[in-house]
Simulated scan of single mutants.
Amino acid sequence: MISNHLMIRDYPVDERPRERFKNYGPESLSNQELLALLLRTGTKSQSVLQLAQNLIKEFDGLRMLKDATIEELTKIDGIGQSKAIQILAAVELGRRITNLTFDNRYIIRSPEDAANYMMEEMRFLNQEHFVCLYLNTKNHILYKQTIFIGSLNASIVHPREVFREAVKRSAASFICIHNHPSGDPQPSREDIAVTKRLVECGKLMGVELLDHIIIGEKKYVSLKEKGYL
């Protein structure tokens, strides 16, 4: 761990919290170092790491930080209102993430559910957008990702891009959705080719493609219902 008594700039670049965060992820940093990243700067008399350590001591190793007020934080030398607000904003984001439940997430029970989820967002687009909805084992949407923008082509929509997000999100399955700017959702040969390629890759990866939905003008086509999956 970096010493409290030296300034960040005194350390080799690859040992600084920001660089370690980028190279090894946030889990590689201590609470003190994560707080130092939020605070960004120390004072003339103490480094940002010393300031972070003072915060940790004051709030019982972060235990009481979740209930801190601006007034309590600004009593600490080196913590002004701006830094106090940054800290409390981060605490509140953490609280909201912790309180998220799967009940807050949209559930896909049918092709119509998937189409309705994306219809208003996609039906007026003047270019084709290829989007994947990544689902958990109960078909809650974990994440939505636009994979490609432009004319659909099996050689351009590469499975690598699709399954990278699936693995990253620990998805059990996924649904592909893309729009036809013409308003006609009937599948093209390329649409069918892309679908079949993703089905085969999904079998190898253990992440099932549940459907490929094509969005038109207030109407859609499910390639699963058409028998292509």
Rank of each mutant, 00 (worst) to 15 (best):
C201H: 09
D113N: 09
M118A: 00
R164F: 10
F163G: 00
P185D: 02
I177E: 01
Q186E: 15
I141D: 01
E112G: 00
T137Q: 15
H129K: 01
K144E: 12
V157H: 06
I107E: 13
R197G: 12
I175F: 07
K168V: 14
A166E: 08
D191Y: 08
R189G: 12
I141F: 07
T195D: 07
N104H: 11
K138P: 03
G183A: 04
A154N: 05
P187E: 11
G183M: 07
I108V: 13
I147Y: 07
G202L: 02
S188H: 11
Y143R: 11
V194W: 03
N126C: 05
F124Q: 13
A115R: 02
D184Q: 12
F148T: 00
N126M: 10
Y143E: 11
N139L: 15
A171I: 13
V162P: 00
A172K: 15
A171S: 04
Q127D: 07
R109A: 14
G150F: 11
N126Q: 13
S110A: 09
R123K: 12
C132M: 12
Q186C: 10
H178E: 05
M118N: 00
V167W: 12
R197T: 07
V162N: 00
E121Q: 04
L125I: 03
R189C: 13
T195F: 06
K203W: 04
A114Y: 09
E112Q: 08
L133T: 05
N139T: 08
T146F: 01
I141V: 14
A115T: 00
V157R: 02
T137L: 15
A114Q: 07
D184H: 12
F174G: 11
A154L: 04
L125P: 03
F163D: 00
Y117P: 00
L133D: 02
T195I: 02
G150E: 05
K138F: 14
A154R: 08
A172S: 15
P185N: 02
D191P: 07
